[in-house]
């Protein structure tokens, strides 16, 4: 192999670069998310869809909501329980889940996702 030494060194540098996130985070365990429900949410018993659906796909639902509300002018949503909800992140979702830091942020931080919803939509004021 011509220039074998150089190639191997180059490969090692690349490998090290790709593995750097693992070295960086080695030994640190991220806090397991523990989303909390507010009293209002507990009382309501159910969200607009089943808990399973909401856990895995709330963002799909929110995306659908924002498109149908803003673009199609359909403002109301019939939940699984037959109840009709006003489709609004700020006014419906966060009325119940008024504890963003203890609910939304729990998983978002764990998964390291940064939804830009809050660039515009106003977070609820949480009393500490």
């Amino acid at each position: 192999m011509y220039d074998g030494g150089k190639i191997i060194v180059g490969l090692l540098i690349c490998l090290g670069f790709f593995l750097s996130p693992f070295f960086y985070n080695a030994g640190k365990a991220a806090k397991v998310p523990n989303p909390q429900l507010t009293e209002i949410a507990k009382e309501a018993q159910t969200c607009v869809m089943s808990k399973d659906y909401m856990t895995t796909s709330h963002f799909t639902l929110l995306d659908k909501w924002r498109n149908t509300v803003v673009r199609d002018g359909e403002r109301y949503f019939k939940g699984e329980n037959g109840k009709i909800y006003y489709k609004s992140l700020q006014m419906t979702c966060l009325k119940c889940h008024a504890n963003k830091s203890k609910f939304c942020d729990q998983c978002h931080n764990y998964m390291d996702v940064n939804p830009y919803c809050w660039d515009c939509h106003i977070e609820p004021k949480e009393s500490e």
């Binding site: 149908t68 199609d72 002018g73 359909e74 403002r75 109301y76 949503f77 019939k78 009709i84």
Partner: peptide, 8 residues
Amino acid sequence: SSQKIPLT
């Protein structure tokens, strides 16, 4: 509106 008929 909840049945996908817009309010418009």
